[in-house]
Computed example of a mutant assay.
Amino acid sequence: MKTATIKILKDELKHQSSDELLELCLKLVRFKKENKELLTYLLFEASNEDRYIESIKLEVDELFNEINTKSFFYIRKSVRKILSTLKKYIRYSKKKNTEVELLLYFCLKLKQFTPSILKSPRLQNIYDTQMRMAKKAMENLHEDLQYDYNMFIEDQDLI
């Protein structure tokens, strides 16, 4: 089966009734967990981005507390899982402000993590990459927000 383009899908959806659209949405939600998460964000979380960010930060805190610290292999594996979850939530929002806030929070948690990430070059590379991505996303924000985030980076010694 060949997948239709977004334009074709959009045109076809215009011809559907509201009941048919509702049924299609429910089928999508049943099909994959990410579809359900995205629809949950769009319906309940998108209207209050600050609450959405705080709920993600709490989840990140829990995930960092559950990391197995017996070896750096397990730490790296857990950190990559946390990062992929975080990236998924950032994709749902599509807001640069949210992206910067969550990436900086991830870097802060990683920097504060014990044992120190300085003992693992791979973890240090993950940290450096995410800081670069946060700074790149900051470039698209208003000057005042850029200043606030740069002050946060300096205050938390994330450089």
Rank of each mutant, 00 (worst) to 15 (best):
L104A: 13
L21R: 15
E54K: 14
L104P: 00
M131S: 02
L63N: 12
E59C: 10
T98Q: 03
Q156M: 07
H142F: 06
F106G: 05
K33S: 15
D19G: 12
L22H: 09
L123T: 05
Q130W: 03
N150E: 06
Q130G: 00
S116Q: 14
T40K: 15
Q16T: 02
L83M: 12
E66P: 01
S120N: 14
K14I: 02
K7Y: 00
L43N: 12
T5G: 12
N140C: 05
K7N: 06
D11R: 13
K57D: 12
L22I: 06
P121L: 07
L118P: 09
E12G: 02
K135E: 10
M133C: 09
K87A: 07
Y149I: 00
F73D: 10
F72I: 03
K109W: 01
K119I: 04
K33R: 15
N150L: 06
L24G: 01
Q146D: 04
D19K: 15
K57N: 12
I159Y: 02
T3K: 10
F152I: 05
D157E: 04
S116F: 09
L83K: 14
K136M: 15
L39G: 11
E154P: 03
T40P: 08
I8N: 08
F64L: 06
N68V: 09
F152G: 01
L158E: 03
D19I: 10
L39D: 13
R132T: 13
S78D: 15
T114V: 13
Y52S: 08
A4G: 01
L103H: 11
I126C: 09
Y41V: 05
Y147L: 08
F44A: 04
S17V: 10
L13Q: 12
D144S: 10
S47T: 10
T85Y: 06
I67P: 00
N150F: 07
F106Q: 02
L28Q: 05
N35Y: 13
E143Y: 02
K36S: 09
E154A: 12
S17K: 09
K111L: 03
K81H: 11
K2R: 11
F152C: 00
I6D: 04
D148A: 05
E66L: 13
L39R: 10
D19N: 13
V60I: 15
I117S: 14
T129C: 09
F106H: 09
A4Q: 13
E23T: 03
I153Y: 02
L63V: 04
Y105H: 04
D144A: 04
E37G: 11
P121K: 00
T3A: 08
T129G: 11
Y89R: 14
Q146H: 00
D148K: 13
Y52G: 03
D61I: 14
Y149E: 03
Q112W: 01
E143M: 02
Y41S: 00
V29M: 14
L86F: 06
V60S: 11
V79T: 06
L102I: 05
E23A: 05
L104M: 13
Y92D: 01
Q112R: 15
T69F: 07
I6Q: 09
E154W: 07
F44E: 09
Y89S: 07
S120P: 04
L38G: 13
Y89W: 11
R91F: 04
R51W: 04
V29Q: 13
